[in-house]
Structure formats: C-alpha cells, structure tokens
Amino acid sequence: MVSVRDTGPKLRPLRSLAALLAVAVVMLISAGCGASNEDEIVVMAASSLTDAVETVLADHGNVSAVFAGSSTLVAQLAEGASADVLITADQATMNRATADGSVQGVSSVIASNSLVLATALGNPGAITELADLSRSDLLIGLCAEAVPCGALSQQALADAQIEAAPDTLELNVRALVAKLALGELDAGLIYRSDALAAGLPVVEAPQLAGRSNRYHIAAVSAQPSLRVQALIDDFTAADGDAAMIFADQGFGPP
C-alpha cells in the first residue's frame, strides 16, 4: 500500500506527458485528413489582396485562401503545394509560374494598384512633392528593388530624375506601410489601396501618374473544374461584385 502511494505522484508527470503526446498525434492525424478535402477550392493570392479577396470569397462556399508575397506563392506551387487558382501582384511572377509549368491556365488581369506618395499621419515632414524624397533631413522609406513595388518606385524616380535618399529599403510593401503608420518614417512610395486601408495621407505627384502594377489571375490546371472557372470569371467580370469590392478598397480597373 505504502509503495503504491509512493509511486503515484512520480508517475503523474509521465502520464500527463503521454496524454499530451496522444493529443498531438490525434491533432496531426486530423490535420492530415482536413488537407485532403477534395471539394475545397484553394486560392493563392498576393498578400496585398488579403482584404479584397477575403471579401469576395465570403460569398463563395468551400473556398479557402492562402496569402503570401507573390514570389513565395510561386515558389510554393513549384514545390508541389496544391492550389486551384493563383493571383499574383504582377505579370513577372505569373510568367515565372507559367514558365516552370506549375500554372497551366491562361492568365488575365483583374485589377491594378497605383503607386502613391504617402506620408506619416499629419504629414510631419511637410512633404509637398515627389522631389522631397531626396531630402536627407527626413526619414524616407522605399520598397527594395527586388520586390514589385520597389521596381516600380525605382523606375518612376529614375524617369522623374529624382535621386531619393532612402533610410530603408523595405522587403515588402506592408512593412513599409506599417512604419509610415507608426510615424517612424516621414514618407514613402506605397500602393493606393494600402494608403487607403491604413488611412495615410497621399500627396498627389504628377510623375507617378500611370505607375501601377497589375494583378494577374490564372487557373493552376489547364482544364479547371466548372466551379474553379466560375470563380475566376467572378474575379474577371468587369462590372461584377468583385470589381466593386476592389474599387471600394482603392484598386484601379484592369
């Protein structure tokens, strides 16, 4: 009796460990089952479309969305991730997915997003024009040239013959938007939809007119199912619900 009472407390930690492991195994197995839901449509979309695409998909049953940078999505597809629809933030990344065979459908443009000169709340740096980006007394942020918004920014600045003095070249546009919203940067070049979502002031700059990226959509398979094709048609319809949602969130027409 005494010996039983002695071992009881010692065994308890082991038992709870075993219980934890059992729970973990069950969770792993059920997660595995969840992944093989045959009827579910998976949409992969560029992270700048998160809000818009989620709003559009809210009306569709059994569709799930994955959001990440376009390059990451293309890499995931190439490594065998299963998805039915891909939406990228520019033509170049869509071309990469088509070139390596991971996307076989024909792509079309669903929306555009124009580059704008945005400032921190209240415009503390008193930014009035694009050329202010070369002022060294301000904290200026741009996207790195390797990401779509950075390539667009570099091109616009080069064409306007403005030598910007950035303090940081952010790795994605969301990081740049966050720093402007926190007031840690005075100004930066971001997308209109991001400025609208974050409530950031936009300084109109004629040199940025027509500078925009185009979102491309394509079915992953060459012969998409009827449901997948219907979903893509919803996104591409010029006067459909999706087009209105996109326009509301600051995106431009294709």
Partner: peptide, 26 residues
C-alpha cells in the same frame, strides 16, 4: 527588419539579404 529596416551596408544583414534574394532568385 521591423526595428532597423533594411539598407545595404548599414542594416541589411545576411538573413535580410537572403529574403531579398528569395524574391529575385531562389
């Protein structure tokens, strides 16, 4: 990335460079 940003020669460390390279050329 969040606190110091990313600027070549000043704050862009190898992990940040890796992330950038991933965008260009995996």
């Amino acid at each position: 990335l969040t606190f110091a940003g990313s600027f070549g020669g000043r704050t862009r460390t190898l992990p940040l460079e890796t992330y950038l390279a991933l965008e260009r050329d995996p």
